[in-house]
Design a protein around this nucleic acid. Structure first.
Lengths: 253, 253
DNA sequence: CGACCTTTTGAAACGATTCAATACTGGTGG
DNA sequence: CCACCAGTATTGAATCGTTTCAAAAGGTCG
């Protein structure tokens, strides 16, 4: 939640972007949805706090480029990253009252996001039924992802949590062509990973070092990930890769 | 995930039911949705495993009476309750591929649930726009609930997690008239609460005892909860009650 | 009654956190 | 250009919270 510029974080490539990914998933042309989203688009710098937890914001957020995260914090100041948002991800900000935001959203890198008011959003879905189907799948995937993480937060060791996070991010980045599957860059610090996995940044460091010593991954330099032994990593994450992908990744129509 | 009959769990009242709750939220008459759901309804006994994780099940589940939970387990056998489902709750089973269930669902008490195929479900929503709005809110509330739990799973102490769980359940049961707000019954064992909060059942026991010693709650007898000091409990849960309710509870239209 | 599950409590062990010190990185200003 | 600075990474040592193991008591069902 620090708004400070992270001078250690390397920018990530801005294209191919979220719009193209949505178009690919929905078998629509990018131009079909571009105009509508463009009206509500906004560029922002790394570190910008886009939405506060508890804000009145009955909007749907679409990430067009860059990385963001949704986070919540306890009154004692600890905070937890609920989910990362990469290009193509969609987040409904409002909670059960249809108005109050259920989490804060912050840009990790420079990013472009569309914050679409709920009524405009439902108009848009009505005029593009394919888009609506894809959005349903994206929400279903997001829900399944959340379940996987809850499982590991509740019952997994530090190794399991981190191995799972590396696998989840690998799958998600592969979908938006920011990962070859085994090699990718995360524009994150170890502190981000700690806030995501519910661990202290110190223990994230130790755990990553241990995975490196066992030659399972190679993580260096803010943060380039190279998965050396996917089988072993999936074993530590206690994940079945095929099943996982079907559950947590939105499939094209 | 044990299918064994829990002979210690007292039944809970079956009415007012989930159907009425949905009707109340949506300003529809119960009869408007009853017929459509009735076609897919099914009674089941406590302990029944309704859905397996990874099943092919592109269905939406509506809880009409009784309690269920959604759970996932790690390969080492540990399992985590992702969410409880009380009457009126709705769960989309399919994950991102629109087919594979993202969690198992088990009945805690005897229960009635409707398992509606996705196409029938979307027909139903189309013919009842009010219902669609309410369903959106129910999903938004469920997502916000999940975020609150992730926060506490990641960064909260055992006391915080359990205090939060007691408050969350109190709010949810109040909505379906199974709680006066401060006094309610949970058809659960301490093991369930442990699986829900990511704690061992032994530590659930210790933590509940400690809360009792401080005269914050009274928990006894499988499991009757009486909140004695709501302010203190909310403090331990690190929750703002008003904000919490707006975020995690579906509001009527 | 016996069988089984749940709750309770104590003691030991373990995993993660915290504290602390040092080194590394990239950006800033003299 | 170099010195400095703030944020980040790394490692060790001590501490703390939770788990695990174990044993006993209570409840419920057949």
């Amino acid at each position: 939640m620090t708004a400070s510029r992270s001078h250690a974080i390397r920018p990530i490539p801005q294209s191919p972007d979220g719009l193209r990914h949505l178009a690919n998933l929905s078998t629509l042309g990018a131009e079909d949805i571009e105009d509508e989203l463009a009206r509500f688009s906004r560029r922002c710098e790394a570190g910008t706090l886009l939405v506060h937890d508890g804000d009145q914001a009955n909007r749907i957020m679409v990430v067009l480029s860059g990385w963001c995260f949704a986070a919540k914090c306890l009154e004692d100041g600890e905070h937890q990253i609920i989910d990362f948002l990469v290009p193509g991800d969609i987040l409904a900000l409002a909670g059960g009252d249809g108005a109050t935001a259920g989490a804060a959203v912050e840009a990790v890198t420079d990013a472009t996001v569309a914050l679409v008011p709920a009524h405009a959003w439902s108009e848009m879905l009505k005029s593009h039924p394919k888009l609506e189907e894809v959005v349903d799948r994206i929400f279903a995937a997001s829900h399944a992802r959340s379940s996987e993480r809850v499982l590991r937060l509740g019952k997994g060791s530090a190794e399991t949590r981190i191995a799972y996070a590396l696998i989840e991010l690998s799958l998600r980045l592969k979908a938006v062509e920011q990962s070859s599957g085994l090699v990718y860059h995360l524009p994150l610090t170890q502190r981000h990973i700690g806030d995501f996995t519910g661990l202290s940044s110190v223990h994230v460091c130790r755990t990553l070092r241990r995975l490196e010593r066992h030659e399972i991954v190679d993580v260096s330099d803010h943060i380039d990930v190279r998965i050396l032994d996917l089988e072993a990593l999936a074993g530590i994450a206690q994940a079945d890769l095929d099943l996982l992908e079907r559950e947590i990744m939105p499939a094209p129509l």
